[in-house]
Simulated assay, not measured.
Amino acid sequence: MSDSSAAADYRRPTALAVFLIIAGAIGFWAAFMLTLDKFALLANANAQLSCNFNVLVGCGKNLGSWQGSLLGFPNPLLGLAGWTATIAVGVGLLAVSGRFARWYWLTFNVGVVLALALVIFLITASLTDLRVLCPWCMVTWVVTIPTFWAVTLYNLKSGNIPLPERARRVFAALYSWIPVITLVSYAIVAILAQIQLDWIHRAFV
């Protein structure tokens, strides 16, 4: 297919753009709240944080752990930068009439994959080591997971990640199932949390 034909066949991914803006705003808000709590802890190690509800639900333990500053600085700063970029991509999709370059999508996809890898690490640390559920962290998990699926499956189905046509059709079908795939992902995390922390009994019984 020629470049002109590809351009003619291009459909702006409006739903994806709107999702990225909304997810980015939610993720940015969670990262901002975590940053404020981190500042509060730096100012006063005994500060009472609004996110600390009980021994099961709170963010103070996470922020004070080495996992909370994985690269030598607080993880929420990564969130502030990453979710700002996500919002920018969403706005760009709505503002630009043409197709983004493949390298642009691949770069963004790499960032999304790294974000998911970090979230998986932090979920594992929260459930097995820290044994606490951080509210703002969980908000981040909630938006990172569908963002990964949406961006990755879009790139797979649209050819930004080169694949044979048959494989692209498979991923195009999966793209329409993102809500279900996301719910399954949430269920897996919830089941793991139940196994490790017995959160249903401790929170509601």
Rank of each mutant, 00 (worst) to 15 (best):
12 R>I: 04
181 I>F: 01
189 V>L: 09
124 T>R: 08
77 L>R: 07
131 R>C: 07
174 L>N: 00
10 Y>P: 07
166 R>W: 13
167 A>N: 08
178 I>R: 00
151 V>D: 01
181 I>Q: 05
103 W>A: 06
150 A>E: 10
20 L>N: 05
113 V>K: 10
160 N>I: 05
118 L>N: 10
194 Q>G: 06
153 L>A: 02
105 W>L: 11
106 L>W: 03
175 Y>C: 03
38 K>T: 12
34 L>R: 02
63 L>V: 10
91 V>H: 15
9 D>G: 12
67 Q>K: 00
110 V>P: 04
164 P>E: 08
172 A>I: 04
29 W>P: 02
112 V>M: 14
169 R>S: 13
140 T>W: 01
4 S>Q: 11
113 V>N: 13
140 T>R: 00
100 F>W: 10
13 P>N: 05
96 V>D: 10
6 A>K: 12
190 A>L: 14
110 V>L: 13
189 V>H: 04
126 S>K: 07
10 Y>G: 11
129 D>G: 02
99 R>C: 11
186 Y>D: 04
144 T>Q: 03
58 G>K: 07
145 I>M: 13
8 A>I: 02
2 S>D: 15
76 P>E: 05
102 R>I: 00
127 L>Y: 06
3 D>S: 14
19 F>K: 08
126 S>D: 11
74 P>H: 09
132 V>Q: 13
138 M>H: 06
117 A>F: 03
42 L>Q: 12
26 I>N: 11
115 A>I: 07
138 M>A: 11
45 A>S: 12
41 L>Y: 04
50 S>R: 02
72 G>E: 02
94 L>N: 07
55 V>G: 15
142 V>Y: 14
201 H>E: 09
190 A>Q: 10
106 L>C: 04
39 F>V: 12
108 F>I: 09
53 F>N: 07
169 R>P: 04
68 G>R: 01
201 H>F: 10
